[in-house]
């Protein structure tokens, strides 16, 4: 496993780097600390901060940790690094007050969340341990990637997983099947409803990646998607939230550009919670078996 930790030498970046140790230690991963120099005169300070952080990470029991410096715009350089070399995970720390978050994190984390292809872990406030993970699913096939990445990480650290789907639909016609709109996850699975089959499939993926059935729970909430995700995060006291993101726009076809029409759920969740959030885009499943 290879983990990239972007750091500007700040305390929040340090927190993110130490949070990465939760995964790096059991996976015996290679950690790369990436510093991006915007002004040449700041390079010595940044380098020494990263060296100190590297030593701290090694003290946490991570065997392999390197420091790398690039020059330019932070988010562009982080993207370039992930394009040039494969990383299983990229971590960034964010600072700022909760309500200012959209503006504060807009600079790097939000831009990365929009453009990065590899899984991005945004750490606003690190948790002391990762015992409970929340994997959110839209109910569509791309959300299987959330289960692949989330499952691999959960298996690594022995975390419990809740797979959450939010039913926000209301009947459009008088003969709509309203029963499905009120059912629990267990009832949806038992009835073979579309959402039930999808949840079942995600549990199977989790199991295939090493999360036993006893440690995974399907859950369905009813209401507005973003509100219900945030409520679940608060009520469930999760240590890590896993969300899928719309595909990166490449401008190749109309069908790709239609993704612009879609709501940016990670953006909303990132701005309204201080919990670590993992943003997942389609990944190569084979690379996510440790």
């Amino acid at each position: 496993m290879r983990i990239l930790v972007a750091s500007d030498g700040s305390e929040c970046a340090r927190e993110a780097a130490l949070y990465a140790c939760h995964f790096a230690r059991p996976a015996q991963a290679e950690v790369v600390l990436l510093g991006v120099v915007e002004k040449p005169q700041t390079e010595p300070t940044l380098r020494s901060a990263l060296d100190a952080l590297r030593e701290e990470i090694v003290r946490q029991g991570v065997g392999e940790c390197a420091v790398k410096i690039r020059h330019g715009e932070p988010h562009l350089q982080i993207l370039a690094e992930t394009e040039e070399r494969f990383y299983h995970l990229t971590l960034v720390g964010v600072r700022g007050q909760r309500h200012l978050l959209p503006f504060v994190v807009g600079g790097t984390a939000m831009r990365l969340a929009q453009h990065i292809r590899s899984p991005l872990l945004v750490v606003a406030r690190a948790r002391p341990a990762i015992r409970k993970m929340l994997i959110c699913t839209s109910g569509e096939q791309p959300a299987e990637n959330n289960a692949v990445v989330g499952g691999a990480l959960a298996a690594l650290i022995g975390a419990e997983v809740t797979v959450l789907h939010v039913m926000s639909q209301i009947p459009l016609t008088l003969d709509a099947k309203v029963e499905d709109l009120e059912r629990s996850a267990a009832e949806l699975i038992a009835s073979g409803a579309r959402e039930g089959l999808h949840l079942q499939r995600l549990l199977e993926i989790l199991e295939a990646h090493g999360v036993e059935r006893t440690r995974s729970v399907p859950k369905v909430r009813h209401g507005l998607v973003i509100d219900e995700i945030l409520s679940e995060v608060r009520e469930g006291d999760y240590d890590l939230i896993v969300l899928g993101a719309r595909p990166v726009l490449e401008g190749q076809s109309w069908w790709q550009w239609r993704a612009l029409f879609l709501e940016n759920i990670p953006n909303h969740v990132l701005t309204h919670t201080r919990r670590p959030v993992l943003v997942v885009r389609p990944v190569d499943w084979a690379e996510w078996r440790f």
Binding site: I170, L172, D175, A176, K177, L224, E263
Partner: peptide
């Protein structure tokens, strides 16, 4: 919608 409903956020 095959099942006759729609996401309320869209409606």
């Amino acid at each position: 919608s095959a099942r006759g409903y729609i996401r309320r956020e869209n409606l």
